[in-house]
């Protein structure tokens, strides 16, 4: 199956130093939190951006989801801090 695209916003994007990246599709049964832990384990900017999951929010295919959501066959995962619009 195709790779998964991850897009980053705000300080998550700045700390990682990338707007987006492609990763190998996680095993079936993997949640957003599982993938976040795997990315944070790379260290460096990824660890800085993704280490504290209490400050992270996510969207799968442009819908907000809790971090314990299964990634399934989603094509795009977005990771970002709590939103501050309005």
């Amino acid at each position: 199956m195709a790779a998964l695209t991850i897009v980053y916003f705000a300080w998550v994007r700045e700390r990682i130093g990338l707007d987006e990246e492609q990763v190998a599709r996680p095993e079936p049964g993997a949640t957003v939190a599982d993938l976040v832990a795997e990315l944070a384990a790379r260290g460096g900017g990824h660890a800085e951006a993704l280490g504290d999951t209490a400050r992270l929010r996510a969207a799968l295919d442009q819908r907000f989801v809790p971090l314990d959501t299964l990634i399934g066959d989603a094509r795009e995962l977005a990771l970002f801090p709590p939103v501050t619009g309005g």
Binding site: V83, T84, G86
Partner: peptide
């Protein structure tokens, strides 16, 4: 306006005259 604040995917970064910058933190009250 309440929903836009906590349900629309926008983020604000502040730029100050002394060159400092900082991302606005979401307010729990929002």
């Amino acid at each position: 306006i309440d929903w836009l604040k906590s349900e629309a995917p926008f983020w604000k970064k502040e730029h100050f005259a002394d060159g400092a910058t900082g991302w606005v933190e979401a307010l729990a009250e929002d």
